[in-house]
Write a protein that binds this DNA or RNA. Structure first.
Lengths: 233, 233
DNA sequence: CGGCGGCTTGAGACCACTCAACAGTGGTGG
DNA sequence: CCACCACTGTTGAGTGGTCTCAAGCCGCCG
């Protein structure tokens, strides 16, 4: 009678160390939710009533600056937890989450977290590692934005996007979800104008092919050389 | 026969939910280490053999950029865990840790982590919340550096330093550990020159008093107004 | 008391931002 | 089904905040 079938989450590292009946137990409290493109999953500042596991689609998390500018925190891929505010002791969501394309996520009430953690300790381990990876990435971005000029930051951002969601095509590797110049600007601390100019010159040089909300990298190796000229050890 | 007395860590939130004999158990595997001012605790890239709990002093964590620039990740205060690379699934330290003043830390072998976590689940909860707080801070700094001009970033950085280690003095609130313009520059993604200029103007305006590696804020409220002109809700 | 690490301050250059105008493109409603 | 409009992207011109380069000063620490 579980509302969600276990096959939906089979193979996710989050549940890797949990036996089948444990997974059933965990899914019992979850509800699947559909989010249309551009739908808001939760909003910054709102009370953190649920946490989520993305099953299909793509979700963008961004933070609102006091003056109204947005900064993109990350793009969430299927298989990732998000909105785990209460796991880290926050009662409100620290960012806004919006579906980039039609998406499906499992939602648990935040109050279920403690019990889940107690019954399935490996969840804690997996979550801690995911948090650690996000912390590393945030610190790396901080380092980049502090020390590198815009072109290199954009190169790094693009490479990360490819690693997270790159799909081979005849023309090269395509970022497999819609991404605008504005998005890239908000990931790298610059403006859409500057991103547009830089992508234009890259396109002239044959490094990339881009269209409206679409970027294909023809030559990842050269892009990597742009990102790290020294080939840092 | 425990090597370290439990009174050393009494009152730390990290051990708040663990009974006395559990604390003794945890301390059994730890060794206290002294670090002289400017001593290296561990270095970025090095294999993560130990994790640490700072007891006295102050430790600076910074990351080295490919071209050699440093970025200050955080200042570690007594009571905080650091170097927990393996807890987050990293086999090497992602940053360098250096004692800012003479310091004392407890060191556990990294291999002890799993067992500790299994025997004392509340450790996991506490650590996850600490990680969450650090993630929040990193993301907030990302937002600041992406959207705000240098003066406001420095104001925010100073306010955070005060919150973490501020001591009342007749002249105002003093950052209670040595901090150079270069440190502040590396926290805010700017240069020591710009920091110097800005602190100079603040000093002229009577906002702060500063000396070599010392900053005292006379008027925190005014500084906060500089940091958030709108008084954002 | 000498030297070095930290700090200050000036001058000039430049990267990236702001402001501005316009051009595709794709979704939507009549 | 087509036309329109909002969204996305391009490109130019000008500006300015911050960096770089440079020189010198101060105050600790050894």
């Amino acid at each position: 009678m579980s509302a969600v079938d276990r096959s939906l989450v089979a193979g996710l590292s989050l549940f890797a160390d949990i036996p089948p009946d444990g997974i059933d137990d965990a899914l019992r409290e979850a509800r699947p939710l559909r989010f249309a493109k551009n739908a808001v999953v939760f909003e910054q500042g709102q009370e953190a009533g649920s946490f989520f596991l993305l099953l299909h689609g793509r979700v963008r998390a961004h933070k609102l600056a006091p003056a109204g500018e947005q900064v993109v925190i990350r793009f969430i891929a299927p298989g990732e937890l998000f909105g785990v505010a209460m796991a880290i002791g926050q009662s409100a969501y620290p960012a806004t989450a919006i579906a980039v394309v039609d998406s499906v996520a499992l939602a648990w009430p935040s109050s279920a977290w403690q019990g889940l953690l107690a019954r399935h300790p490996s969840l804690g381990v997996q979550t801690m590692q995911a948090l650690g990876a996000r912390l590393q990435e945030a610190q790396t971005r901080l380092m980049e934005i502090s020390t590198q000029e815009v072109e290199r930051r954009i190169a790094h951002a693009l490479l990360r996007l490819l690693k997270q969601g790159g799909r081979r095509t005849p023309e090269g590797i395509l970022v497999d979800f819609p991404i605008s110049r504005e998005d890239i600007a908000q990931m790298t601390g610059t403006t859409l104008h500057t991103v547009s100019r830089i992508l234009s010159t890259w396109q002239e040089r044959g490094l990339i092919v881009s269209a409206r909300r679409k970027v294909t990298v023809r030559n990842p190796a050269q892009l990597a050389r742009l990102a790290d000229p020294e080939g840092a050890s």
